[in-house]
Design a protein around this nucleic acid. Structure first.
Ligand SMILES: [Mn+2]
Ligand SMILES: [Mn+2]
Ligand SMILES: [Zn+2]
Ligand SMILES: [Zn+2]
Lengths: 151, 151
DNA sequence: TCGTTATTAAATATTATTCGCAATAATACA
DNA sequence: TGTATTATTGCGAATAATATTTAATAACGA
């Protein structure tokens, strides 16, 4: 399950002229141990770390999340109005997608192997190097449908 | 092509206790006439309208974009860091997806009928009312691959 | 072990988006 | 067709997520 060890993360970083820091290691650790279906915002990650006694500045958290998303280690998700959420980017058997209620932000994860295949094929066709591939279904959940009208 | 006339937009709005205003009509008009492959941010739409002599406040633009996205008339896309883009939400034959370079934001549109089917099926299965279904492929384009390292 | 330089924490800046409000105008209905 | 109701607008101000600047620190390669 745990794709990156300290050593492999270091290699991945050093390859690009970057450095392995305790902060980066800790943050990746958190995402690797996060329960399935959980997603964290920068703020939430900050709070979680504080709770564990880890003192990592919010700036560093923002920088690290962005860096790791661009490396393909994390997925950057738009699951709520106003801020991003992150989760570990897992390959094939764990790869999944999101069904989202635009009113209450209820999120359901689902798997579908076809989508990743389509995405990989398309990226390859255009010569892009694939980082992530995410289907987001914007919809209205059953309970929000019942609670009619109000936006 | 033009899915909504003034009359049908009015009906759609009034059904929910909302009103048809010249501003809403104008904004939907712009998106319906937008060239294939073009996406607009709130700011860009504002500038475009100004250029045409239409004076619609930025507040109204933000409100309208959000409203229409939640109605399913527009698609809200995350194609760049920091701000959203919008396009008209077209059904089946025009429905498409995006391949995006996370470094330079180069965007390629592509079609795939399977994805919409998967999305519809999943939404139905969970009792959600589908608004939009978008596959976003995060990747690195060929020229950014060549321009190595720099983030 | 040392020098170089990427990274950090903290404070500050930026900027997309929202909100409060008073004025206006779309709609329902008499 | 006129009137009352209230959703919507434009403006300015507020908010909040994220970026940036800086000096101090600490990884890394030699
Ligand atoms: Mn997920
Ligand atoms: Mn598009
Ligand atoms: Zn809901
Ligand atoms: Zn690029």
């Amino acid at each position: 399950m745990s794709l990156y060890t300290a050593a492999s993360l270091k290699a991945e970083l050093n390859d690009r002229g970057w450095r392995l820091t305790p902060q980066r290691q800790t943050i990746l650790q958190v995402f690797q141990n996060l329960a399935r279906g959980k997603h964290l915002s920068a703020e939430e990650l900050h709070d979680l770390l504080q709770g564990e006694g880890e003192q990592i500045s919010l700036s560093t958290i923002y920088r690290t999340l962005k860096l790791m998303a661009r490396m393909g280690l994390l997925r950057e998700l738009e699951l709520a109005e106003g801020h991003k959420h992150y989760e570990i980017n897992q390959p094939y058997p764990y790869h999944h997608h999101h069904l989202l209620c635009v009113r209450c932000n209820k999120t359901i994860e689902f798997k579908n192997d076809t989508i990743l295949k389509i995405g990989s094929k398309q990226a390859k066709k255009d010569g892009f190097h694939l980082l992530d591939c995410q289907l987001t279904i914007h919809a209205i959940c059953p309970s929000c449908q019942r609670a009619l009208l109000p936006v």
